[in-house]
Design a protein around this nucleic acid. Structure first.
Length: 563
RNA sequence: GCCCCCGUAGCUCAACGGACAGAGCAGCGGCCUUCUAAGCCGUUGGUUGUGGGUUCGAAUCCCGCCGGGGGCGCCA
């Protein structure tokens, strides 16, 4: 709120200065209202002068001075003074009363605090997880789910209309699916006592046996005979369906819900794949070579052309995926976000090339690549799951350390950094564990409010309570962090960086714990007690909102287990 | 060989191209007759891998090199 106001003033000052002939420039550069690290540089600072210096052909400090002169003469009720300083910063010093106004603002906004209108109703599609229906979700998928879902929540908070979509890789010609079905079928036959051996490239996890067992329970021996191809097709359907259901369950328990489950096969059934190939051909970006149909992706910066239809007539995965993304563009989103694992990074160039070839703006498609996740138990790497064989499932880790801790840990690091998760640490109920640190702050607030209620302390009215008494260093520091929530959301959205929010949550918690230790709420004199109760309430709202965006619960109590 | 990510305090990591590079953990020293000590306060710790370049200003952008991880299929 205040940042926006300051930005408008600074911008207006620049325009006024130009109109008065005091400053020359062609275009107004995009500038920042930042929070100086050092409080001696004020509460907020604008860097416009430095960006304008070259165009204005003056040194930045002079430009800052000129801008300062063209700022509104009447000082705002919040602004104490403005200084041109350093290399050419414009530093804003706010009146002490500003802090109280922030608290009032947050309380008036209530649970709406942190809702922005950056998106102005623009539509965003976030496609994430999109795991193959040939196995349970893995630790890696969990990161995808946590990042994607929180990103979606952030975009919603920023005022976008968001849709979450899961692309089901259920193409009937997929070799993976076929192998998977064959593996299940083999296990099924083994259950029936037949000497069946697993195919090459089989799926060896225990869960394959589970599915076979389920089929046996449900359908008995009815697949023991019959046309092998028909039986296999049937197994494909059942196994796929079952995996999908399990994935959906895992995701729901991980607090991730999708608006749409988009089937790859539906693109074939509807003729969309065919139509897409024809469109590419018509535009001159698909050509025949050695019996295959190729996408001329090199025309748009890819390192080589890619096969769309194999020499045997079968379309590749790429063909369907291009059709899928074409479908997204045709649905008219302003922005489309894909979240892919690091092992798919080589795929980015060709997908963007394909969109360009179809005449779409590739910049509307953001493809986010997240790096690998490693699991540790203390210092010991965990490599395999009991149930899945070669990988660790989301379900196992979620069950062991809980959804709150896992989601928080997934979002603790930037998605383009490899992530190590230590199960022991995540379960530890101690100061080492950042999740508890944040949740504990929330629980402490609730505890104050409970005690206040028990003692019959009236709930102060934000409209009439004097908040100018909040001048203690710990109070002001806390309030400043609370005031940052809208900017934190804006930044996280701007950079597609949901992990910034965990850092913010930790900052707010830290500021609160410090306040808690230094400032008594309930035993303060009545006027101060009222103001501090409102500050406490504003902190609770801000923390709860932040945790909600992270998909982490905000507990009202946390009792330490007896040692 | 080519492509992507990473390299910052002993460890794990932050830092929209901005002012003196910050947290947590570990280490050291303090704080509970009080609203939850799962907490707080203080303190130690840095040539941002390396060499150039762009810029008023570089951990951040560009180029080279070194090291770690991942990927380079008519698989998905």
């Amino acid at each position: 709120m205040i940042r926006q106001q300051l930005a408008e003033w600074v911008q207006q000052a620049a325009l006024d200065a130009r109109a008065a002939g005091a400053l020359e420039f062609e275009t107004l550069p995009e500038f920042e209202i930042e929070t100086p690290r050092n409080p001696q540089f004020g509460d907020f600072a604008a860097n416009l002068a430095m960006l304008l210096a070259r165009q204005a052909r003056r040194n930045p400090r002079e430009v800052a001075e000129i801008l300062r002169q063209y700022l509104p003469a009447e000082s705002h009720e919040w602004v104490e003074r403005v200084e041109a300083a350093g290399a050419g910063f414009l530093n804003f010093y706010l009146k002490p009363s500003w802090a109280g106004e922030v608290v009032r603002h947050i309380l008036v906004q209530g649970t709406r605090y942190g809702r922005l209108n950056l998106g102005a109703g623009k539509r965003v599609l976030i496609e994430f997880v999109s795991a193959n229906p040939t196995g349970p979700l893995t630790l890696g998928h969990g990161r995808n789910a946590a990042v994607g879902d929180t990103l979606a929540r952030l975009y919603e908070a920023a005022g976008y209309t968001v849709e979450r979509e899961f692309y089901i890789n259920d193409g009937e010609n997929s070799l993976q699916i076929r192998n998977f079905a064959l593996s299940v079928l083999t296990r099924y036959r083994q259950l029936l006592g037949e000497p069946a051996t697993m195919p090459e490239d089989a799926y060896h996890g225990e869960y394959v046996k589970d599915i076979a067992q389920t089929i046996r329970t449900q359908y008995g021996d009815s697949f023991a005979e019959g046309d092998p191809e028909t039986v296999l097709k049937r197994f494909e359907q059942i196994a796929k369906q079952q995996m999908l259901q399990e994935q959906e369950r895992d995701l729901a328990d991980f607090r991730v819900r999708f608006d749409r489950w988009f089937s790859e096969q539906s693109l074939y059934d509807s003729g969309s794949v065919q139509a897409t190939l024809e469109a590419l051909r018509a535009r001159g970006y698909a050509y025949e070579h050695e019996g295959a149909l190729w996408l001329k992706s090199t025309a748009f910066g890819d390192e080589k052309d890619r096969v769309l239809v194999r020499a045997n007539g079968m379309p590749t995965y790429l063909a369907a995926d291009v059709a899928y993304h074409r479908d997204k563009y045709e649905r008219g989103y302003d922005l489309m976000i894909d979240l892919w694992g690091a092992d798919h990074h080589g795929y980015v160039a060709r997908m963007k090339a394909a969109m360009a070839a179809l005449g779409y703006d590739p910049n509307r498609l953001h493809i986010l690549i997240y790096q690998l996740v490693n699991l540790f138990r203390g210092t010991e790497p965990v490599r395999m799951s009991k149930r899945a064989g070669e990988f660790i499932t989301l379900r196992e880790v979620m069950d062991e350390i809980g959804v709150d801790a896992l989601r928080f840990f997934y979002l603790l690091r930037s998605h383009d950094s490899t992530l190590d998760i230590d199960i022991e640490l995540a379960q530890e109920q101690s100061e080492k564990n950042p999740v508890f640190y944040v949740q504990y702050a929330h629980a402490r607030i609730c505890s104050i409010e409970r005690t206040a209620a028990e003692r019959g302390v009236p709930i102060p009215d934000p409209a009439t309570t004097d908040l100018s008494v909040l001048t203690h260093g710990a109070e002001v520091a806390l309030i400043k962090r609370l005031a940052d929530l809208p900017d934190e959301i804006a930044r996280a959205v701007k950079h597609d960086a949901p992990h910034r929010l965990t850092a913010y949550a930790l900052d707010v918690a830290r500021a609160f714990h410090s306040f808690y230790t230094e400032c008594r709420v309930l035993d303060a004199v009545p006027a101060l007690q009222a103001a501090r109760l409102l500050l406490t309430q504003a902190t609770r709202l801000t923390l709860a909102r932040t945790l909600q965006l992270l998909g982490v619960s905000a507990p009202e109590r946390m009792e330490r287990e007896a040692p």
